[in-house]
Design a protein around this nucleic acid. Structure first.
Lengths: 191, 191
DNA sequence: GAAACTTGAATGGCTGTTTAAAAAATCGTT
DNA sequence: AACGATTTTTTAAACAGCCATTCAAGTTTC
């Protein structure tokens, strides 16, 4: 029982430290020693838990992907109409616990580096196609078939772009403002 | 006369090689030796011309920024109405010579790394505020004041998002398709 | 006492930059 | 045109530093 628990505690601590350290120093530049220091541990112990630096990065992204997925199913639970479900897909990306500068920052670094790591690009592919199919499912109920793909691209690009800007923000983000702005964009696309 | 020319030729060759090499290997991982090999030169000669790796990166981004600026003033030349000028701002980002996978890729890597380099973040700030003011100038002529900022954010986020996706594309891009898609988005925002 | 956990130190490899010396280009003079 | 002098360009090799990973030897937990 406690065998598992210690490992899980360390995992979370190290992943949180990774998010902070990557945000502060940059994905390509951050060192194991810096992440370890942020977590109050040693570089060697990170390898003990995650095997390698790439393993740590993969676990960190897996963690963030999980949070995103969880936020989305939580939103789906209360949504009744296709439009509400479309709101829910957008809202998940701007959820309070997700839409923070460090997390948007690390997400962008993930995007930038995914093409150069087979393990990361796998995660990237999975997540993107999941978001994509959620969008398509709701849009098909709201728009004529020939407009669906254009609308999806517009909304998904908007979402990505907001994160990209958020990653560069110098002050704290306002998730609720981002959500209502996103709703306005949805209403623009689907009158 | 020819003193200047050789230096300019090498500069361009090395910058082109940088774009290719960074696209292939990633900003944070690419080495001077790899860039040099791509250009058919030696790592030492890059330092001779650019002083350092960071200097090379700054020069490369300056080059891309210049191309973007040039594309935009070229578009402005033929635009007559505010709406046409708004199209022109979008079109510049999707110009034939600019909207390619390697260049979108390096641009994203630039975004991701700008916060960690004072020289890059300076360029980033300059470019962003320039695009922003272009957007605002045209939108103010087309929308009531209280809608301008929302529309600007929607359009600029869309643009950024398209580039982000383009950087991940596995096949060649279609700049004209991107331009007409962008026009549709503009028409959506400004009826 | 065994298993799980932690870490300081060693390892091996790789990187950007400098240096010094050679090669190439340019120029002034004849 | 030719040629020596001077400047510009090139690079191989050396340098200095850093980093992920490993490992052996401890410490903690059960």
């Amino acid at each position: 029982m406690s065998r598992k628990r210690i490992r899980d505690i360390r995992n979370e601590e190290l992943i949180e430290a990774t998010i902070v350290a990557v945000h502060q120093r940059g994905y390509g530049v951050v060192t194991m020693a810096e992440i370890a220091k942020e977590a109050g541990a040693s570089a060697a112990s990170i390898n003990y838990y995650f095997g390698s630096k790439e393993g740590l990065m993969e676990a960190t992204m897996l963690h963030l992907l999980g949070k995103l997925r969880q936020a989305m199913i939580a939103g789906y639970a209360t949504a009744r109409t296709p439009r509400e479900r479309l709101y829910a897909v957008m809202d998940a990306n701007f959820a309070d616990g997700l839409f923070t500068v460090p997390q948007c920052s690390i997400w962008m670094q993930f995007w930038a580096n995914a093409p150069y790591s087979t393990r990361l690009s796998r995660l990237h592919r999975i997540n993107r196609s999941r978001v994509r199919s959620h969008f398509l499912a709701e849009l098909r109920a709201l728009l004529p078939a020939e407009q669906v793909e254009t609308a999806r691209q517009a909304l998904q690009c908007y979402m990505d772009g907001v994160w990209l800007q958020a990653a560069q923000a110098e002050t704290a983000l306002k998730p609720d403002a981002a959500r209502s702005a996103a709703h306005r964009v949805v209403d623009l696309v689907i009158p």
